[in-house]
Structures are given as structure tokens and as C-alpha cells.
């Protein structure tokens, strides 16, 4: 291949590849009512439509919801920011890299046991579970609104690398590796006695 051919091949790559076009995932999200959202993240209710309550961009009650705008792919690394408060005995589970029905994903279960002032956090996949609670002891005031950041690196070979930060202090709370991986590009929440004020996702904070 001479140099002229090589330049032509490069040029062909540049002009032919394009990330535009229709995106049914985004279109589906756009059709949802603006009120059916946490913050600006529109969502679909999978379970508990009778008990979940939307109010000024927040969500309370018991149920299972899937965010309408999926992740870029199953094998991706993402950061999730969640502002929430928990009732006594309540729990909120953030589910990432899951199937459309939110099975087969990477789960962060955040709970407040009855009568306790401590948060319990477990990270799990279908292949294993890690209890991250000890790293949060004495660092989170459960009586207040809490904002946590979670990194879910579902792009490693055999396991999920997870990292959690306390947004208030900017402190890294814990980092661990959970056996197994999430299998899809959907993400959502399971609520059982809590209020979620805001949720967002972005590129993974931890880069390596």
C-alpha cells in the first residue's frame, strides 16, 4: 500500500464513521412525562406503581424503577451519584449494568437497620457479595440527607471493581472487588422505605 492509498483509507474511516442517527432509547425516554423522574433522570416504574410517590423531582415509597436512559453498554465503567434519606428500617438499592428487568446487575444495597444510626452497604452480583459497611462506620449522619458517589467498573475481566465516596467530605469511603459481573446496560433503583432526591450518572471517577 503506497502512502496515497493509506491517506485515502484514513480519510474514509473519518468520514464514514459517525455516531449520529436515531436512538430509540433516548426517544423512549423523551416520551415519558417530565414528572416521572428523579431530578432530571426520567424513569419507568417496574413494580410498585401504587405505592411510589413522585414529588418535586424526588421519589418515595416501595417499588422498583428503571431509568429510561440506559448505560452506554454492559461492559462499561460508570459513576453514580445519589442523594437520599432513609427511614428507620428502610433500604435503597442502586442497580447498575443489569438486564431490562433489572436482574443480573451490580447492586449496592444501602440500608438503615431498625434503631440504628449507622448505614449498612453491601455490593453484590449474582456471583458474590461484599459487605462494605465497616468502611462507613461513624462517617455518615443518617439523620440527614446523604449524597454518595459510586463507581462501578464493570469492564474488568472477571469481577466488578467498586468504589464509594462521601460527597460531603469528598472522602473515598471504600474500594473493593466483587466476583462476577453485570450483564446488561440498564440501571435503576429498588426502594423500601426511603426518599431519593437526586440521581445522576457520569464517567467513572477512578481512572486506571
Amino acid at each position: 500500500m503506497n502512502s496515497k492509498s493509506l491517506i485515502l483509507v484514513c480519510f474514509a474511516f473519518v468520514i464514514s464513521a459517525c455516531g449520529g442517527g436515531q436512538n430509540p432509547d433516548v426517544e423512549a425516554a423523551r416520551l415519558l412525562p417530565a414528572s416521572q423522574a428523579i431530578g432530571s433522570q426520567k424513569l419507568e416504574v417496574l413494580e410498585g406503581s401504587a405505592t411510589l410517590l413522585f414529588s418535586n423531582g424526588s421519589l418515595t415509597g416501595n417499588g422498583l424503577i428503571r431509568f429510561a436512559d440506559p448505560l452506554e453498554g454492559a461492559e462499561t465503567a460508570n459513576n453514580f451519584s445519589m442523594t437520599f434519606s432513609l427511614d428507620d428500617g428502610g433500604s435503597i438499592t442502586l442497580i447498575a449494568n443489569a438486564n431490562r428487568d433489572l436482574t443480573g446487575g451490580v447492586e449496592f444495597e444501602i440500608s438503615r437497620p431498625n434503631g440504628s444510626n449507622e448505614l449498612k452497604v453491601k455490593a453484590r452480583t449474582t456471583a458474590g457479595e461484599r459487605d462494605l459497611s465497616s468502611a462507613l462506620e461513624g462517617k455518615i449522619n443518617v439523620a440527614q440527607e446523604i449524597t454518595l458517589w459510586f463507581d462501578v467498573h464493570n469492564d474488568h475481566s472477571d469481577s466488578v471493581h467498586v468504589v464509594a465516596w462521601n460527597q460531603a467530605s469528598g472522602e473515598e469511603l471504600t474500594e473493593d472487588v466483587v466476583p462476577g459481573k453485570g450483564v446488561g446496560a440498564s440501571w435503576g433503583l429498588r426502594l423500601q422505605g426511603g426518599r431519593v432526591e437526586n440521581v445522576s450518572r457520569s464517567e467513572a471517577r477512578d481512572r486506571h
Partner: peptide, 11 residues
């Protein structure tokens, strides 16, 4: 390097 996935802007 350019990532072109249909329905997403080029990265």
C-alpha cells in the same frame, strides 16, 4: 481516537 456508537454523539 473516535468512538462512534449509533445514537450517541462521537466521543
Amino acid at each position: 481516537a473516535v468512538d462512534t456508537t449509533q445514537g450517541s454523539g462521537d466521543t
